[in-house]
């Protein structure tokens, strides 16, 4: 049986194909960490005048759903990525890390 992490990576990748965010081309998607610190890490080529690469880290799951439904959680990842791009104007003012990746933060509300 495919692990939750493998399902999440697969579904998020497919979601970004069927609901593409214009100007982003996936370079890699992986899951890092363990337990509550587990994150899905996405790196994109930024095909806008800014160029370079854009990164986004987001929890691979949270306590509201648990590790039960990668399909539903992938929608949360997509929506938060889209909002982060909007809020940071493609990370235009975020300095890239030494690897040349501008990491955009998620726009979270309050619990």
């Amino acid at each position: 049986m495919e692990s939750y992490e493998a399902q999440l990576i697969d579904i998020v990748a497919r979601l970004l194909e069927t609901l593409p965010i214009p100007g982003l081309r996936i370079q890699k998607i992986r899951v890092e960490g363990a337990g509550a610190a587990e994150e899905i890490v996405l790196v994109f080529h930024r095909e806008t005048p800014l160029g370079g690469r854009l990164g986004f880290r987001f929890p691979a799951w949270d306590e509201s759903l648990g590790r039960t439904d990668a399909d539903q959680w992938s929608a949360v990842v997509w929506a938060n990525l889209d909002e982060a791009i909007n809020a940071t104007d493609w990370g235009s003012s975020i300095a890239p890390d030494p690897d040349g990746i501008a990491w955009i933060p998620p726009c979270e509300g309050e619990d």
């Binding site: 965010i21 100007g23 539903q72 949360v76 929506a79 938060n80 909007n86």
Partner: peptide
């Protein structure tokens, strides 16, 4: 009824989706 329902509502920004 297992769906999350509305995840977000927002004014569209430069992402252009």
């Amino acid at each position: 009824d297992r769906n999350l329902g509305i995840i977000t509502a927002v004014w569209e920004g430069p992402s252009g989706t």
